[in-house]
Amino acid sequence: MEITVKLFAMFRVGRFAATTKKYQPGISPVDITTELNIPEKEVGIVLVNGRHARLDHRLLDGDILSLFPLVGGG
């Protein structure tokens, strides 16, 4: 299945801003962060199609996964 992965802030450094590629069916955001060498404790916000999700959320074909470190502003 195809997933679009978007990275933000410090996660982009040495990686990428966005990519779409094929993954095994049934994977979760945590499988992708592991593959990208992003430690779980550094993950601040996980969005799947613009909605907050957990790292063990089951991804579906065509999903957009957005990963942010813990950042903020205001």
Binding site: K6, F8, A9, M10, E42, G44, I45, L47, G50, R51, H52, S66, F68, P69, L70, V71, G72, G73, G74
Partner: peptide, 23 residues
Amino acid sequence: PVSGEGLPTYGTNVLVNILHEAG
């Protein structure tokens, strides 16, 4: 991480992409 790293690096404007992604 927000006050110690995120804000000093990207400023408050880090929110543009977050709010965009969150709709």
